[in-house]
Design a protein around this nucleic acid. Structure first.
Length: 193
DNA sequence: AGAGCGATGGCCT
DNA sequence: GGCCATCGCTCTA
């Protein structure tokens, strides 16, 4: 199968933020919560590493960002604009301060739960943004520091990332020229093209 | 289709 | 006191 993009292991490659951002595309993100199971395919990501002025890890470890310095697979949730949560999956060696922001999902299971949590019907609007998907999936500060390898939020093999677009990141003011955003080409659940 | 803006809280200088 | 890795509503075109 040389030259064919496929998922060839049962864990994504989280060795660095850039590798992880690409590797996580197509994986199924699952949350088994008290309200039920919600899941979706990861269709859009952004990489943030320790040398990146746009990263929350830039400037060193603090209470707010400490989870980013934990082992790869740790979930780093942050609160922003007074009302939104966003979710990252930590990459790289422990102590580095790297992660991948999950920016969009293609909703798969628990659509009714997502619709209730989001307060909207439209399937396309449920998870096409970093704060939208955490609301739909029921991810909050409570999940801060959990590991995707043993917890109620975890990954399962999903769909092959056949065609990936790499471009600049969204919603940041520093280092915005870096092409560290990845998404599945032609996927209707990407936050924006 | 795109600009403007309010909501709202933790962390920074 | 100001800034945000945001979203969705409300205007103008």
């Amino acid at each position: 199968m040389a030259g064919m993009a496929k998922q060839d292991s049962n864990i994504p490659d989280l060795s660095s933020a850039l590798v992880g951002a690409r590797s996580l595309l197509g994986w199924k993100l699952v949350h088994d919560s008290i309200e039920g199971r919600t899941s979706g395919y990861i269709v859009e990501t952004e990489a943030y590493d320790e040398h990146d002025p746009a990263s929350h890890a830039f400037g060193g470890i603090r209470k707010r960002n400490a989870a980013m310095f934990e082992a790869a697979g740790t979930i780093y949730v942050y609160f922003t604009y007074g009302m939104h949560y966003c979710m990252n999956i930590v990459t790289g060696d422990k102590g580095l301060g790297q992660g991948v922001l999950i920016r969009a999902l293609q909703p798969l299971e628990g659509l009714d739960i997502m619709q209730r949590r989001r307060g909207i019907e439209s399937k396309h609007q449920l998870t096409n943004g970093p704060a939208k998907l955490t609301q739909a999936m029921g991810v909050t500060k409570q999940n801060y520091g959990q590991s995707i390898f043993h917890g109620d939020i975890y990954l399962e093999p999903g769909i092959p990332a056949l065609s990936v677009v790499q471009t600049t990141r969204i919603g940041i003011s520093k280092a915005k020229e870096l092409p560290w955003r990845f998404y599945l080409a032609d996927n209707p659940y990407v936050s924006r093209i």
